[in-house]
Each structure stands twice: as C-alpha cells, then as structure tokens.
Design a binder for these strands. Structure first.
Lengths: 252, 252
DNA sequence: TAAATAGTGTCTGTAAGACAGTATACT
DNA sequence: AGTATACTGTCTTACAGACACTATTTA
C-alpha cells in the first residue's frame, strides 16, 4: 500500500500504472431441459494463469479494434460462436489487485441470451475446448479467475429478472408457442408455473404478435398451438408483479 | 482499426496498450425538497480535458492504494465528503475509444445514497469547486466526459428501484418518521404517493424497527410521530409490487 | 375549539394461483 | 373411442389506490 516504490507520476497525467482491462461474457441458452452456459478452456500452458481450467469466454480489450466495451463483448461472442443477434446486457464489473496473477485487473462482465439452435460453435471448436454446461454444474466447477462469482451473479440476475420480465423469450427460437415458452420459464426458474396465470400474463403483456399455427410435424401429438414472434427484439417486456408474488431480485 | 501500426505483442502476454481505468461516483441526497447530486469542478487548466466543467467525483484507479474497485469508490467518496457509511452500489461501466480525449478509457460507475446531514464537505471545499445540484438541473448542465449519460443512468436506476425497494430510507437520517420517509419517496419519484398504501407497504416490509416517539421540538405542530430505524443498513428491502402497478425499470 | 399532523378502516380494482373444464389434433 | 396436448373459465386471495375517518398534539 506504499506509493514510494514507483517513480513519481505527474499529478494529472496519464503515465501511471494502468490495470489490465478485460471483458467476459456469460452466454446462456436453454437446451435439453436445462439452462446452459458456454465455457472455454484456458490454454494448457504453465506460463498462463489457470492453465487447463474452464473459464467464461472473454479476454483483454484490444484498443486497436474495439470501439467500445459493447463492441468488445460482441467480438468475443463472435469469436466463440456464430451467434449474431443475442440479447446482450451488461452485468457489472469486477476489479481488484488479486483477481488476476498477472496484476491489477478489472473485467467488464456481460451476459447474453441465445436460442440453442442459433449457436454454431466455431468450426475448429473441439468439445474439450469450448462447450455448453448446465449452469448449476458449471457453478460447481473450479473455474478460472473469479469466474464462478461472475457466473453466480449472472445467474442471480437472470433468475431475478425472469420473475418479472419476458427475458426467456430470447432463449427460444421464433416463432414459439406459449407452452414452449412456459417450459423455458420453468427450466430457468427451476419450478413449475401455473399455465393459466402464465398465459394471461404473456398475452396481456403485449410484447408478442401471432405468427400462425405451429407447422405440423410427423408424429406430433395433440392440438396444434398458436405461435408468436417478439414485437421488439431489443428489449424485454416488464410485468407489474413477480411470479408467485415473491420478491425476487438481482443485484442491479 | 488496423493493428499493423503497433509493435506485435506476445499472443498471451500483457504488454499491449491498456485502457485508462477510472471510477466515478454518483452521490445522491435529498435536501430542500429536492433530489440532489454532488458535482466537482474540473481543474481550470487547458492541459486537462474539459477544464472548468462540472463532473462527477471520481478519477483513475490507483493500483498502489486501491485494493479493489469498491475500495477505490470509497476512497473517492472519502476525499470529497466526510460521509462514512453510504449505501453504495455499482451502476455499471462505460468504456470506449472516444469518451476521454487522453485515450481509450473505461470507467466503473457507482452510485451512493447518503442523508444530507451526514455529509461534511471537505474542509477546504469551496462552493464553486464542490457542490450539490438538483439532479434534474445537473442533467441539463454540460457535464465533462459522458457524465451526463452516467448521471441519467444512475437517476433511472434509482427511480426505478424506488418503485419496489426501501432505498429512500438511506437518504434520510435515522431515526425517521413514516411521514418523513414518505416525503423522501415523493421527492425522488416526483409524484405523490398514497399515505395509507405507503404505510402498509413500509410496515409490512419488516425492514424497520421502532425507535420511540419523535423528540418534541419547539414550535412543533400536530400529533407526534413514531420513529423507526433500519434493521439492516447493508441492503434495501424489496416489495412484491411497484407503486401504482406501473412497470418501472432500471437498465440492470 | 381550531388547526395541524399522525395514523386507521373500508371499499374497490387488478392480477396472480389453483384447478376444473373444454377444444382440437393424432392413433 | 382414447389419448395427448392446447386453451379457457371460475373462484379465491393478495395487495395497491382512493378516500373518509379517528387520534393526538399545540396555539
């Protein structure tokens, strides 16, 4: 904590030590009845921090190619997946002297939602280098850096917002049926929701428009469902109450 | 956007150009029936960016004294005010190649809530260098950097959360009466709230404990009020619905 | 007693929860 | 017909909004 070791910098100048600046992205999807998150493996190189550990996709801001933090997050996403128009929102930032062994480091963390089928993992991607994991299982892995903390924060934020927003609509292919959307809600929340209340809430929300009856598939059983599209893919709808009248939150 | 101008850095090394890293704090209080925000004046030096403009308190992270971003935000607060235990929450981060003329810069923005009387502006502080401004008036000033955007985001977040949390309790001295707390809500929201509904919500919230009847003051009119203290100063209580059943939000 | 402020009670509207019931497809 | 899935209706409960009412203080 002593400032005497470093050479004196001009009081108002910019020539002092700068923290490392990175961006990490928590990419969520729903697949196989589970909320999943994309992880990448750190290089297996002893000179690197946390070699061989799973981590969130991300990396240092490149001041030559990234115009902004958001741009940087989109670039990281593009490098790992073919996902093009995810729902993307900032989660917060984490910075300290100790979170990266290479020095004082601050990361700007985003989270993104994509339909599983929209993601084309990069051509050369191997399953032992980039892969989807159940969110709760990923939490129990020994992730690199403080990524377990970032993931926990992203999960809390997502689950909190799902209580009172239409966010899960970004985790599903369009057009979608209401029973399919309800299933996504239940997977994310980890509990069943009442069908009648769910339908009333969604239809009254006014954020969807009808997209015709579900296309018939072979072996499809039961009455076909109406399908819907989002009116506005840039933001989620807000409902006046949370599900179950429980106060649910996110840290933001 | 070409990477060819810079010397080649090792692929996984840390010897590339690093963005400037700063922390800014939006400090709110309620005073004189208005939501106010603390601003400081940039030095009147042509070598500095935005000389003489009003700005949010903040500055570069000092990797030698700040253990973390939160530490840095607390230091910035301490340097400008004597406020000791504010409610402090991260708002988000803003970073781009253009927001600071000195180079690629990322700021981590926090917002804090304090009771007006808890703030002792620093001894040498002059009103033309550090001062409180009505939040909406401050928004219309030509603030330095992108601080108008940060302030707008902080205001939106605060007003959004006030709809469904007990945050305004951090803007008032303890112990406080329910009518006094209601007044703070009304000042922040900019609209009246119903007394009966307000009292039910606060008392049912279970986040306060009684602290005796209001001390008698000379010239005090009307029935004395019960006063309360917060049970937990570290976090706000959440209510199951928003006021007025309107969907209010923050971007986080 | 009048004025001012604190606090309560009652009615209504809205939307969620529970769950039974109806509708439309396939085999 | 039987089964599976989609969708609707009805009753109850919870709580915010409106607003009239009571309570306790000082002048």
């Amino acid at each position: 904590m002593s400032a005497s070791k470093a050479p004196r910098a001009p009081v108002h100048g910019t020539s002092f030590a700068r923290p490392l600046t990175s961006v990490d992205v928590v990419l969520f999807t729903v697949q196989a009845d589970a909320l999943q998150v994309l992880l990448v493996r750190r290089p297996d190189d002893a000179a690197e921090p946390f070699p061989g550990r799973w981590a969130l996709p991300g990396g240092f801001v490149n001041v030559e190619v990234d115009a902004s933090l958001l741009d940087c997050a989109l670039r990281k996403l593009r490098e790992k997946t073919g996902a093009i128009t995810p729902y993307l929102e900032q989660l917060g930032s984490w910075g300290s002297a100790t979170r990266d062994p290479r020095g004082w480091s601050a990361t700007h963390c985003f989270y993104a939602l994509v339909p599983a089928m929209a993601v084309a993992l990069h051509k050369g991607a191997r399953a032992d280098e980039v892969n989807w994991f159940d969110a709760d299982a990923a939490l129990r892995k020994r992730l690199a850096f403080d990524h377990a903390e970032l993931l926990a924060a992203a999960l809390a934020r997502l689950r909190g917002k799902v209580e009172y927003t239409s966010l899960p609509a970004f985790l599903i292919e369009e057009p979608f049926s209401l029973p399919a959307l309800q299933h996504v809600y239940e997977v994310v929340l980890g509990r069943p929701v009442d069908k009648s209340a769910f339908r009333k809430r969604m239809l009254d929300g006014g954020f969807m428009e009808e997209a015709g009856m579900r296309a018939a598939e072979a072996g499809q059983l039961g009455r076909p469902a109406m399908t819907y599209r989002l009116r506005d893919r840039s933001q989620a709808a807000l409902f006046p109450r949370t599900f179950n009248a429980r106060g649910a939150d996110d840290a933001g």
